[in-house]
């Protein structure tokens, strides 16, 4: 494991912790898209099915369990916890996220490295993860007041994607025959989706002003 990969994983972990902190401690999920959280729960559930079939390292297994557990508990919190649910921006969070699932599944059935059940689901999870942030970005744009924690959550998620790209560049040059177009292209698409957000985030940071995305 290289430093970019580790930094990427830690950034991902930090993003989840920030979100859990907001939900668990402040008992608020204002500005957080339940649609995006549901998509992430599906992403992890389909990608990490291999915890039953293959073992890489204790680190790998633990992190998978953390991401599975956190994504499902965030969804449950937002749906069923009374106080948290009340703060949910239901009227604003209207992205038709199920329409993302089917095209990703079809694409995974068409474009994959190996046609096996686990491999197709794994590929599906890559495609779905690439677009899963869209409902969250749309919600941010509609929310007038983005609080710091929600802004930091999206910033950390974007950072994690950027670091994974550096990790792939590093692995490409250090490991023989390390070429994975499916992962790279979907990872690149995913990172590009954050570009706009990053621009406004850095502006607000530079000018020491509250983050606000243009409508």
């Amino acid at each position: 494991m290289n430093i970019f990969r580790l930094a990427g994983d830690m950034t991902h972990l930090a993003s989840v912790l920030v979100l859990l902190l907001k939900i668990h401690t402040i008992k608020s999920c204002a500005g957080v898209s339940l649609k995006t959280q549901e998509l992430y729960a599906i992403v992890f559930a389909t990608r990490y099915l291999d915890i039953f079939t293959s073992f890489y390292s204790i680190y790998n297994t633990l992190m998978k369990l953390v991401f599975l557990g956190s994504s499902f508990s965030i969804v449950l919190y937002m749906k069923y916890h009374k106080t948290v649910h009340r703060s949910y921006d239901r009227e604003q969070d209207t992205f038709r996220h199920w329409f993302l699932v089917l095209p990703c599944l079809l694409l995974a059935l068409l474009i994959h490295e190996k046609f096996t059940f686990l491999e197709v689901l794994w590929t599906f999870s890559l495609y779905l993860e690439a677009v899963a942030i869209l409902p969250q970005l749309v919600l941010l744009q509609r929310t007038r007041n983005i609080d710091n924690l929600t802004g930091q959550y999206v910033f950390l998620l974007g950072g994690y994607r950027g670091l994974y790209i550096l990790n792939w560049i590093y692995r490409y040059f250090t490991e023989p025959h390390f070429v994975h177009w499916i992962t790279w292209i979907s990872g690149l698409v995913q990172t590009l989706l954050y570009a706009d957000f990053f621009f406004y985030y850095s502006q607000s940071w530079k000018n020491n002003k509250k983050l606000q995305l243009p409508a």
Binding site: R5, Y56, F178
Partner: peptide, 10 residues
């Protein structure tokens, strides 16, 4: 195999 190496990522 090459695919396996990609699967060690999260």
């Amino acid at each position: 195999p090459p695919q396996q190496r990609m699967h060690d990522e999260l």
